[in-house]
Nucleic acid binder design. Sequence first.
DNA 1: TGGCCTGTAAAAATCCTGTGAAAGCAGGGC
DNA 2: GCCCTGCTTTCACAGGATTTTTACAGGCCA
Lengths: 267, 267
Amino acid sequence: MNPQQTIRLAVIDDDSGFVTVLTKRTEAAGWQQRVLSSAIPPEELVAMKLNALLLDMSVLGDEAWDYLGRVCEVLPDLGVVVCTGRSTVAQRVRGLRLGVDDWVGKPCHPEEVMARIEAVSRRRRRSRADVETGPLVVGELEIRADQFQAFVGDGSLDLTRREFELLQLLADTKGQVLEREAIYQRVWGYAMAHGDRSVDVFIRKLRQKLEKRSPGWRYIHTHFGVGYRFDPEAVGGVAPELADEAAAGIDPRADDSQVVHSSFTVA
Amino acid sequence: MNPQQTIRLAVIDDDSGFVTVLTKRTEAAGWQQRVLSSAIPPEELVAMKLNALLLDMSVLGDEAWDYLGRVCEVLPDLGVVVCTGRSTVAQRVRGLRLGVDDWVGKPCHPEEVMARIEAVSRRRRRSRADVETGPLVVGELEIRADQFQAFVGDGSLDLTRREFELLQLLADTKGQVLEREAIYQRVWGYAMAHGDRSVDVFIRKLRQKLEKRSPGWRYIHTHFGVGYRFDPEAVGGVAPELADEAAAGIDPRADDSQVVHSSFTVA
DNA sequence: TGGCCTGTAAAAATCCTGTGAAAGCAGGGC
DNA sequence: GCCCTGCTTTCACAGGATTTTTACAGGCCA
């Protein structure tokens, strides 16, 4: 249904003939592409916000496996396709198990390589394709994706970009408990380092700004040892229609009772 | 999170030599596999709750492309790998654009096919998170993986993370007796030290919380000298010991209202 | 009855989260 | 280029919650 969402691709290959032919086609298809003739650190790949990476093992030299491993670990959502000269079954299996998504032998047809890159990128985007719906309203909040900002009434929360993305993710998954690793993965775009507290810090900032503009509501709930859950709840006398529920205590399934979403009704 | 989750695979192929060799390996790897020698309607594939489908174009005959298209449309989350005899670039591209995730030519090494299926399932799983399995219902209990929590009716059991994981393991293996070492291994993730009583302690906590929310049911059974078994049983009739509580001012009718009403089973 | 095993309770140790603030970065204006 | 500003990341610590350890009582089986 959404046919040709543009793909951001990096190519690590020094085979200029192949790259030239490929580039002609990717450009025709409207892909954004960056060609590198040698490996660059995974951290820089992060900054490029890629959908996919195409690489030839031969330009990596001795570091190849190590490099592949690191890339796949740091960027678990990046589609990685190896396109390289001859290889043994064992090598291909090793690569795939390491996290590579597809492995093609050279020589190969650029159209097939593109089709494989598309296939690899396809799954990832299906889930976030539908964010472009109108403003999302939860509790007293109004989240406007087009403005990268949230409002209560007319007042902006003054969210920074990351704060906004975090809030949007939480609101999109309302009612679900998200683990820190998952949050980090989806907001920051790469794997969370062990012991990183960024998520906690941003949760606090969000809570502060939410509290400032919308006191009387509680939005973000902590699940000890697990993560966070977004669920707007009116607290204390201020909110008319839901005050009784708030008084009844915190119910993790509160969204069932508050939000009208067609679900199975049991007599 | 869950590193080596077992893969549910269906194979549509009539090349008995290949299938035999492959099956030997998938079984060794602990995969659940079903072999079909001809196509079956996509609707039936749905019911099989597969992670991946491996198929040979040649057994599909004229319907092949049509069938592929329908499968990919009906089951967008299914990993589809084609493993077939010779094919042209155009065919492969067509398949991949149609929704196939990977296309391998025969002859090929079963290990590589498995690695590719793993790669495809890995990607699929990542994008779909864990919304997959609906809540598990046992006895009066409702276990929600997405909430890391269990409920009776609307009341949360207030399980901590470990308590929840233990309960989930037990419920998943309902009816089986699990030894402490096995439980520890699977919940804690590493080997249990000799003399460690953690499992017993957590079983007790679980029993307490289960009893509190769901009196009138017995869930965890002790097998002396062996381990524990999870099996929900409604405990019959009137509980005599409740007499004291009644005297102490607790309304005995509370039981009636709690016990009866929730026992729908979800297929 | 004796020798394990299990249930139970509570103390001790560990881990987790909230929080404030400093340090590190990136971008814009001069 | 340099400084300023605002944003992000890192650090350290306090207060709690959870997990682990320990101890003892009671039960199961030979």
